[in-house]
Design a protein around this nucleic acid. Sequence first.
DNA 1: TGTACATCAGTGAACGCGCGTTCACTGATGTAC
DNA 2: TGTACATCAGTGAACGCGCGTTCACTGATGTAC
Lengths: 217, 217
Amino acid sequence: MSTNLSPVQVATAGRKPMISREDIIAAALKLVGPHRSVSSLSLREVAREAGIAPNSFYRQFRDMDELAVALIDLAGQSLRQIIGEARQRSRTDLSVVRGSIEAFMAQLRADDRLLHILLREGTVGSDAFKQAVDRQLVYFEDELRLDLIRLAEANHTGLFEPALTSKAITRLVFTMGATAMDLPDDKYAEMTEQVVTMVRMIVTGTQVLGESTKSVR
Amino acid sequence: MSTNLSPVQVATAGRKPMISREDIIAAALKLVGPHRSVSSLSLREVAREAGIAPNSFYRQFRDMDELAVALIDLAGQSLRQIIGEARQRSRTDLSVVRGSIEAFMAQLRADDRLLHILLREGTVGSDAFKQAVDRQLVYFEDELRLDLIRLAEANHTGLFEPALTSKAITRLVFTMGATAMDLPDDKYAEMTEQVVTMVRMIVTGTQVLGESTKSVR
DNA sequence: TGTACATCAGTGAACGCGCGTTCACTGATGTAC
DNA sequence: TGTACATCAGTGAACGCGCGTTCACTGATGTAC
């Protein structure tokens, strides 16, 4: 274990690296896509794409697993920012649902490689791999939960089990996204409507079930 | 392409096979599990487990992809039978939801290898692979849709977009199942409750949204 | 500024391995007479 | 029943390949004086 876990080199002495983690990440992203998963990439393949010797890879990452986790974390950050922006645009009404899902699907359609990774790699790969994906999912669930609570308060509706609701929505949207990834462009609009309707079902159900209690916890 | 797609040999002449497709499938099932996916199995590995020469594999399957599709189809059949039995036990009320999900989770907990495959392999692997999983999912959605319609008629409730509802439920349950697979045994009861609640949200939402129309189409 | 030295990022060559696939074969089983 | 022959399920050996990882190295950059 190195004591320097930061991507910024301490640089007490010696030469600066010419190959950065970012170069390798960029190379990996060039290789993945709707028909290619991170877990199927080989170290040599990534090195080849990055234009470096295979063993130079080890200067930046311990192994492919560490690269994969880095990719997943990046993907999570990127998507949360996109959804966060969509949320800002419409805060207090139900259109936040539609807005967020539309932003999500648009990003998917734009062939966002990072997003492909996040949607698809959750079920295969090493434990470290799966945990990284799960961690990102939990971030989404947390943010969505707070949103749901805010929404319920603003509309004076009940809210049943906000944590479970946000988990159901997150997981459902991600699965549907993984399916949508392989679809031709002209199916995206239809798919978006389907997902919006599905999420409305959950939100409506949650409000109704919460009506008796009117509790937000 | 062979004209004989049936697993039963025509046997017009010559020796009967001593190695069956079933032997190879059994060997593959011994190798998969919560921490091992079909897409990571090698032909030689399966042959080794089956106790046959690597090239004998080709007498039964064109390649690993064909084996994987066979496994997925088997998994779908097996699970549909299990859920079908659960459905028989309680036909006309909402307990069909709980019953089916409990049967599903119990099977998962019993370490059903076939089920692991079906839950996990949908997002990676070849196109043939993904299509096979999708085909099984659609079977489930169809059966569930008919159930939902029957349920709505029996209870005289409305039903909004039954096809979309069954799709949402199926996909959500499968994703949650894939997550549950990696959990320790003592979390299964809690997980089951969570999934039941999530599905109730969808069903409730569907009924409320359908109330205005009272249509079952 | 100039010189001697230390550091270490990146490399080229090589390793042993397991892989999918092929080939020519062998010998048990079934068929024809 | 007995014999000659055809079929073809299963095999052992070999192939070339890409893989992850190692090793000893080189030479540009930074530091000390």
